[in-house]
Simulated assay, not measured.
Amino acid sequence: MRKTVLLLAALLLAPLAHADDAQCKLALGRGWPPATENYGTATEKLFAGETQPTLSVTLLPKLGVESGVLLVANPNGGDWLLRRAVADERVHAWEGDKLVLRTTRAPEFTEAPIPAATATRLVADWRRALALAVPEGVTAPFSEGDTWLFVAGDLRVSGLRPDCELGALLRDQIDLLIEASDEGDGKREKRWRQIGESLDRMRVVLDAMAAPAATAKP
């Protein structure tokens, strides 16, 4: 009897879950939020150094130090570089009555190899997710709170903390990357599997989001 009740509840809730997926709106927009580009560019450069990330997420917090996660492709093939970076001191700061960008002190890094297959899938799936959830013409919103900067391939979107199920999946994947950057080989293998499972779920969410748009086309 209990199993029957649970199954019925799952069936009743399933359409609601799909509806939530389809209506997911991330508080993000294309490009840079107003008055943020110089600050964001300086922070990304501090974290990337001479490398050119293919995927990155950078947090510009209202308080505290900036942080980020980035993936750098291996030009010779093989594993990519996963880097977690945390600023040693706040980049965006007041010195006396003058606002400055402090980028002379090296950030703290933790780095690890990430399989190319996992990295390339992250780039492709993140790009699809961000492009679908943030259509062209939607500008990045200004916030006096934390600002999130996402880059996936040639796509940049920025704005507020990503919420709803899609945002939660993105944040879960970021957390798994952070954990993997500071773990041994055995635990990292588990993280890659968890990321793959999260990406599988994200594709289901994205398919649900894309379905209404496809139906609306003549």
Rank of each mutant, 00 (worst) to 15 (best):
S67D: 04
L101K: 12
P107N: 01
A117Q: 14
T54D: 11
A106M: 03
A129Q: 04
S67E: 03
P115D: 14
L122K: 11
V91P: 00
T58E: 01
K62H: 08
A27L: 14
P115G: 14
A42I: 13
F47Y: 03
E111R: 13
T36M: 05
L63D: 09
P115H: 13
L101I: 04
A129P: 02
P33R: 11
A106W: 00
T58V: 13
F47D: 01
A35H: 08
D79T: 10
G40V: 04
G40W: 08
N38L: 09
K25D: 15
G68Q: 05
H92W: 13
T54E: 10
S56F: 14
A93I: 13
V91R: 01
L71M: 08
V86F: 10
G40C: 06
L26E: 01
A129C: 03
W80I: 03
R84W: 10
P115R: 15
L122H: 06
A27K: 15
E50W: 05
N74G: 04
E37Q: 06
A112C: 11
A106K: 11
L28E: 00
C24A: 14
N38V: 06
K45Q: 09
L46C: 10
N76C: 05
G29E: 11
G64R: 06
W126I: 01
G29I: 09
R105I: 09
P115K: 14
G40Q: 03
R83N: 09
E89M: 03
L99M: 06
A117D: 11
P34D: 04
A42L: 15
F47G: 00
L55M: 14
N38R: 13
D97A: 12
D125Q: 15
L55N: 12
P61Q: 14
W126K: 00
L99Y: 08
L59W: 03
G49C: 00
L59A: 00
A124S: 15
G77W: 01
Q23Y: 09
R105S: 12
E37P: 01
E108V: 10
S56N: 14
R127H: 02
T120C: 13
R102W: 11
A85W: 04
C24Y: 00
H92L: 07
R90F: 06
G77I: 02
G64S: 08
L26G: 01
E108W: 10
L59R: 12
L60S: 13
I114N: 07
I114Y: 09
T41C: 06
N38C: 04
A117K: 13
V65T: 09
L46G: 07
K45F: 03
L101P: 04
T110G: 06
L60Q: 15
T41D: 05
K45N: 05
K25W: 13
T118H: 07
G64P: 07
L82Q: 01
A129G: 04
P61N: 15
E50Y: 09
R30S: 03
F47H: 02
A116I: 05
T104S: 14
